[in-house]
Design a protein around this nucleic acid. Structure first.
Lengths: 143, 143
DNA sequence: ATTTATTTTTGGAATTATTCTAATTATTTC
DNA sequence: GAAATAATTAGAATAATTCCAAAAATAAAT
């Protein structure tokens, strides 16, 4: 429930870099996301955050998630029309959504795959981000 | 504005296969999507559909897009939290979203790329679909 | 062919995730 | 510590989509 010194420092630096203040709420939301390394929705983050900071509001959770994303400390993950989820894993990875269990699993991707994907683009295109989402059935959901 | 015989047949077969009826509205929505091969939202489809079928309702457009998707005649495309778009290109392809022009471009992907992506999955996982969305700047938007 | 049963369409209301607003509170700067 | 700036809050507003119940269309059964 407490942000480790190195993450606290990372947070402060990232916020400073983008000209924003370090606040109790931002720190708390960040710690909530780091604590259980899954892919919670804003509502879930709100529920978890409230348990040790009962006065925090949903609007603030949305605000914090937004600033954390902008500062590059977390990532947003979207599946179809479902509510946006938030992810503290900053490495280059894709997401696998298991239609059976609802589980979302990070899939680490070798650079070579990304290179191949970039090579598929027409000349003159510059890429900022590639979002890759699998769906299917995860290992636990097989017989 | 008129569905060609081969597409009419394809529509009827696909609907029959999934136990649904062929209706004027479904046919019309399908033709609207095929006519201009871009990536319209439901609202845009509604606007285009109304011009030659003024009585069609937005709810029906949503219904038709849903049944066409379920029958495998069109695909849904999602970018972040933006409204769902619909795409008549059924080949294996990704989408490039140009942040400058808003343009969405189909990117054809060689099988090898898909194979590499599948290979990145842990053992025991089965994939149903892989959604790949690039964003960045397209060729037209460079100096 | 009519009747009966099943699907679709329709317009509007309801839902849901998210954003906006204006007032209050906290943080930084002078 | 006072003034300026930024962040938080609660609740209202928004926007895409879905739900609903009645009317219309299509198919099946007599």
């Amino acid at each position: 429930m407490q942000l480790s010194p190195e993450y606290k420092e990372r947070l402060d630096h990232a916020l400073e870099r983008s000209g924003q203040r370090s606040t109790k709420q931002r720190e708390h939301v960040f710690s909530v996301i780091l604590e259980k390394r899954d892919h919670p929705t804003a509502d879930e983050v709100y529920a978890r955050a409230k348990s040790s900071m009962p006065t925090i509001s949903l609007a603030t959770v949305y605000n914090c998630l937004e600033t954390l994303s902008e500062s590059g400390l977390i990532r947003q993950v979207n599946f179809e029309r479902e509510p946006t989820r938030y992810c503290p894993n900053l490495t280059q990875h894709a997401h696998f959504y298991c239609k059976e269990s609802g589980e979302i699993v990070d899939i680490e991707l070798p650079d070579s795959v990304i290179d191949h994907l970039k090579a598929a683009l027409p000349d003159g295109y510059t890429v900022q981000h590639i979002e890759i989402a699998y769906d299917g059935k995860c290992g636990d959901c097989h017989d």
